[in-house]
């Protein structure tokens, strides 16, 4: 045993990996030259292996070594480097609210803001709702271009049906109790006749090519007919007209069902188009009658 022998504590730290780089090199060099210290190291390793075999799990969990502490510290630093800015602000804000005085001030601020929004003129809910509803933003109109009838046409494009603007429930006046709906309000000009209830096109309806142009024409003529029928048609004529219209609409309904089930059914399409044309002719005849009556003034 030399005078410079390493004490048992240092050897134990060496075994535990708690020594630093230069110290570890010095200890290793000394042990290689000193048999006494090598023997002590061997005994210490033997004892340590015996103890560790017994309490390995408890020691590893409950007694972190210097190396473990350094790893933990490194991991913490790494995590801090990756924390986003908003999270730091949030943490700082919540820590500020831990102070009673700051929390009270924040509550007062929130109350002031709430009452100001409710009661001040021009800043309340009513003004916001009406302003948004009155802005003349025309309702979005997406209509499919009429497509020519082509034999062996591909299956019906379902996007055309989904884009029908009339199918959307348009509201021009929003209830005060639900101001959030004002953001969805759509504007419909007054001179645009709203189709009567029950005449909305189904949202998921499938339109065959060219059908949409028929529907647009019919919608226009129907609005004209509704405004003319009372003064143009006599009661008997009106009964006859309504009967004819019902027959045609029934044909359209039947043929639409057939075409929806089998879009490639050319015969059904031909009959469907013919029925649409019949309906247009029917509605148009009322306008012609009004013109004739007006010319007889």
């Amino acid at each position: 045993m030399s005078r410079n022998c390493i004490d048992i504590g240092t050897l134990q730290a060496f075994l535990d990996g708690e020594t630093k780089g230069e110290e570890t090199i010095l200890i290793s060099n000394h042990i290689s030259d000193c048999d006494t210290c090598a023997l002590m190291l061997a005994e210490a390793e033997e004892e340590m292996s015996f103890v560790m075999a017994t309490v390995e799990s408890d020691v590893n969990m409950l007694v972190p070594t210097q190396r473990l502490w350094s790893r933990i510290n490194d991991a913490i630093e790494t995590e801090r480097a990756h924390v986003p800015l908003w999270h730091r602000i949030y943490v700082g804000f919540t820590s500020m609210l831990a102070s009673p005085s700051l929390a009270t001030a924040a509550a007062v601020l929130v109350l002031f803001g709430f009452f100001a929004f409710i009661f001040l003129p021009g800043g309340g809910l009513d003004g916001t709702t009406s302003d948004i509803a009155a802005v003349p933003q025309p309702a979005a109109t997406v209509s499919a271009e009429p497509m020519p009838t082509v034999r062996n046409a591909p299956p019906v494009n379902t996007e055309v049906a989904a884009a029908q603007p009339e199918a959307l429930p348009v509201r021009t006046e929003q209830p005060k109790a639900s101001p959030a709906r004002a953001t969805h309000a759509a504007y419909r000009p007054d001179n645009v006749a709203r189709p009567p209830a029950g005449n909305f096109r189904p949202v998921n309806a499938l339109y065959v090519p060219g059908e949409d142009s028929y529907l647009n024409t019919i919608e226009t003529l129907k609005a004209s007919y509704d405004s003319q029928k009372d003064r143009v048609l006599s009661p008997s004529s009106r009964v006859s007209f309504e009967r004819d219209l019902a027959v045609v609409e029934n044909s359209i309904k039947q043929m639409r069902e057939v075409v929806r089930k089998n879009p490639n059914n050319q015969a059904a399409r031909q009959v469907l188009y013919s029925s649409y044309q019949d309906k247009i002719d029917l509605l148009n005849s009322v306008g012609q009658k009004e013109e004739l009556l007006a010319s007889l003034q």
């Binding site: 102070s99 005085s101 700051l102 009270t104 001030a105 924040a106 007062v108 601020l109 002031f112 803001g113 100001a116 929004f117 001040l120 003129p121 021009g122 800043g123 003004g127 302003d131 802005v135």
Partner: peptide, 26 residues
């Protein structure tokens, strides 16, 4: 002291909100 500072800050924000609310509507 911090309560007073916070209250002053809240008052400033309130006055600003009121001025914004009185902007003539479209």
């Amino acid at each position: 002291r911090s309560f007073i500072n916070s209250s002053v800050f809240a008052l400033v924000l309130f006055v600003g909100a009121a001025a914004q609310a009185q902007t003539p509507p479209v």
